[in-house]
Amino acid sequence: MGRIVFAAAMSHVLDPDYYERVCGAVGRRKTDEAMAAIAAMGERFSATGADALVVVADDHLNAFSFNCVPAICVRIGRDVPRMRQDHAEAFDAVLEHMPISYPLHEALANAILEQGTAAGFDLALSWEAPVDHAFLAPVNTMHGTRPIPPLVPIWINCFVAPQPTARRCFAFGQHIARVVARGDWNVGIIATGGLSHFPELSVARIGDTDSVFDGRLIHWMERGEHEPLQALSGDELHKSGSHEFLNWMVLLGAVSPARAEVRYFGELPRINLAAVEWNLA
């Protein structure tokens, strides 16, 4: 019987240069601190010897264009490339220093997809979509120079309304847990993004964050109280800049009722950086 042996969630713009440019010295310092916490989580993940790492993240209108925006999409195939962007700006630039191709865990990805469809989840699939910083910044920060196990990238549509609900994302995470339990693999799962930033996806509100809202999320996660999290509305997530918490909802469904342990929380004017790990004992 397979097991989820590691679960963590973390911010995914992990670029000290970027945050120094937009927030000054404190931006670099707090990003370095967050990355150190994520690297330490990665060491614990590597020590599990997991067969696969499921990465739940969002697309920043890089992999999917306006001909199709899937609510939930499972990347299948044997490997996945990182996104390439000419003259990359901002958070795209961090990708340029990362390996260009990553192996996939084909059997686990196919099982999540096929069993999901059978269970009533109308999942999208992709053989070709590349992954952007939302996937690769956390994965590379966790692993450093250590080998990266086969990945199962899963996209959640966090930004293009109408998004899937928090409750639906949680249910999909429960599905992932069932698939893992039916299989033979030890699996890690991470969710990326957040916490509060870019409220209402408005340029005018860049620089606002909602630490009170983040505090509520953390309170519930630390206590394993997942019902109020499933009740979060799209409007609440949009106004508080918590769009990417939908990725975290998938992870919560996969590990519920496990309790979260905060490894790092750092407020910046642009974003609240976070690194959280779940106690699966």
């Binding site: 937009v22 209108l61 990359a88 700006e89 340029v203």
Partner: peptide, 26 residues
């Protein structure tokens, strides 16, 4: 900035090479 107000997605207006909006440093 105006294109964002008119419905342009934030992550696109922040990341188009040579055209990206650069909000004030905080």
């Amino acid at each position: 900035r105006r294109i964002n107000e008119l419905g342009g997605y934030l992550h696109l207006v922040l990341s188009i090479p040579g055209l990206a909006v650069h909000p004030p440093r905080h």
